[in-house]
Amino acid sequence: MEINTERTDGVLVINAEGRIDGSNSAQFLESIQAVVSDDDNGVALDFGGINYISSAGLRVILLLAKELRQKQTGFGVCSLSSSVKEIFTISGFDQIISIFDSGADAVGALK
């Protein structure tokens, strides 16, 4: 899975496209871990291009949230499609992960 990154005001925004499921979730986690720097104030996953996330993908988000919390780095997801948002709502992840409407909102909150 290809990811694109951009740093704005100390916040790393990571764009991904397609599906996140059991077949690519480990690779997705590794590629994110490779780009996150200790200097980042915050990390946001921009899911504007993601149309599906399975429970294996949610687990990656949970792992990232735990790792970043230990480093006291802010974390959130943004630009969720309606189907991905529904998955966050059903699983209760919306109660434990910060969700922002857009990348700009995420940068504003996490910088």
Binding site: L58, L62, S91, G92, F93, Q95, I96
Partner: peptide, 9 residues
Amino acid sequence: VGGIALGIA
């Protein structure tokens, strides 16, 4: 009724 997946928090 709300609720979160088990094992997280």
